[in-house]
Nucleic acid binder design. Structure first.
Lengths: 208, 208
DNA sequence: GCAGGAAATTATCTTTTGTTAACCGTGCCT
DNA sequence: AGGCACGGTTAACAAAAGATAATTTCCTGC
């Protein structure tokens, strides 16, 4: 069965990466990671499919193998506000449910067809109870997420919207080209109209 | 010696709180926490004293027993930008050094006389190697910090500066009154002038 | 390939913020 | 007490962003 074979190859790419990470972080040999990866499962999301809804209480942690995801929230006035985007080789988690055991404020949705390697956080905790040697992996993704949040926070307090956009272009040009501008705009804390003006200003400056 | 006695009482307040936390999180009995708290030390900072400088590589983690601290960064134009404030019963950490082993971008400074319960993060890691039962404490402060960062991020993408200020007043009125407005302003991503205008507008609205 | 819809741009107007500088009030230091 | 430094307010102007709506471009499903 060719499809199944491809899926298995796919899975192993992602698992191999995480096994390597676990080895680097904690010296755990790939052969010793079966108890962990036995509890993971691959999830396919279609473009535009919702992964986690506002109000969901499932505690999900996932590693993005392929595709781009968007975390957003519905504002009081009904508009959406994008908090962040996540793509290949990054983690995504239902933060509220995991950290505060609260229903999720945020909605997590695939912008493209997405492949995830998912684990239920409660299951992960159980595995970690009996296999504390995997613990560094949990610290790793928590620290990664914290680091990314702090970087975004820094850009909000130190940079103007235009500078934030320039920054994003410089650091994640590929991403900006994959994602509709309106999501980029709201992630930068501005309206799509304003982002369009910023782009125009940048072009004009480049010409003048 | 009265002073010494007072210091010891003080320390024990903070340690007791953390012992209780560790019991709640992991069922570790206070009597079994000696290996951890033996590695902590109390630090006194005068008002305006710097705790961590930009460029520092020490990996410090501290629990704030008393006082308010400010984390800020020097912008390219020389101005300061405040990222966040932390106060009693919160953790503060040299994020860059701990997460990425990089020299700190941020400066951490006491706004008031501050008392910290400090541990060297490398020492903590060593303790955790031999005492994995304390591990939930590490997850706790990482998650707390992440949660706070995400809340701030949310307020940047969903709220206007005025709304962010109202929010802050509603949630941390005590803090706003303890800290000079200019730091509040830069934490909100605006200038002190603009915050002053927001305050005026709010007053005017209240009167009209 | 075409039609319909969504995204992006442009235009207009209002509101807010940034910038710079002057001005006030408070507290601190000698 | 006097003066000085600092934080906060106010003023005036320029620049940018928000809101709304019209228009164009793009893309996607049929």
């Amino acid at each position: 069965n060719l499809t199944l074979a491809l899926v298995e190859i796919n899975m192993s790419v992602s698992i191999t990466t995480l096994q390597q990470l676990l080895f680097e972080l904690a010296g755990v040999l790939p052969a010793d990671t079966a108890p962990l990866f036995a509890m993971t499962r691959q999830v396919q999301l279609a473009a535009n499919e919702t992964y986690i809804r506002a109000g969901d209480t499932e505690r999900r942690l996932a590693y993005i193998e392929q595709g781009v995801m968007r975390a957003y929230i519905i504002k009081d006035n009904g508009d959406e506000a994008t908090l962040f985007l996540r793509w290949e080789k990054q983690f995504i988690a239902s933060h509220d449910a995991i950290i505060q055991r609260k229903p999720s404020r945020f909605i997590y949705r695939a912008l493209e067809p997405v492949t995830l390697l998912e684990i239920d956080y409660d299951v992960l905790e159980a595995v970690l109870k009996t296999h504390p040697e995997y613990e560094p992996l949990r610290n790793f993704f928590l620290m990664r997420m914290l680091s990314e949040s702090l970087n975004m926070l820094e850009s909000f307090v130190t940079l103007s919207p235009e500078e934030r956009y320039r920054n994003l272009l410089a650091e994640r040009f590929d991403l900006v080209n994959r994602v509709p501008d309106k999501y980029i705009a709201s992630m930068l804390g501005i309206t799509p109209v304003s982002l369009s003006r910023i782009r125009k200003r940048m072009l004009d400056k480049g010409k003048g």
